[in-house]
Amino acid sequence: MNVTPSSVSEYLQSIGGITDNPAYLHLDDSNQIVDWSIQLNDHGLKLFDAQMITLKNFSFLEGLLPCPNNPLVIPRMQIASTQYSDLHMFSTPLGQWIILLDSTCASIQAQLEQQSRLSSELLTGG
């Protein structure tokens, strides 16, 4: 089992997130994968063969690298059909860090509310 890197756990603590078994990806400064956690598969990724994992497995990162020094949050990303994830990206002297946090429940609730409101708007010529 992976030990959560301190950069990840400290960041999660700073935002009040759950620090147990986070889904993370660690890149060096030249965008080479240093480490990743199997929990990324909980977000719709299909990372089975550790030897074969490359940046191509993370197509959603296209255009987003390098990670900024100050944390960037991209909310409610739907990478798989039913899953919503908040993407957190930041850099430290140890490299680049990408963390996915599950936001499915809140997103589905927001989707239901928005669906109702926008459907009404459309009916009234919105």
């Binding site: 197509s59 909310p75 409610r76 990303m77 739907q78 919503y84 997103s107 989707q111 926008l118």
Partner: peptide
């Protein structure tokens, strides 16, 4: 069906 956030 309204989209929430972004679908990739």
């Amino acid at each position: 069906t309204t989209t929430i956030g972004v679908r990739i």
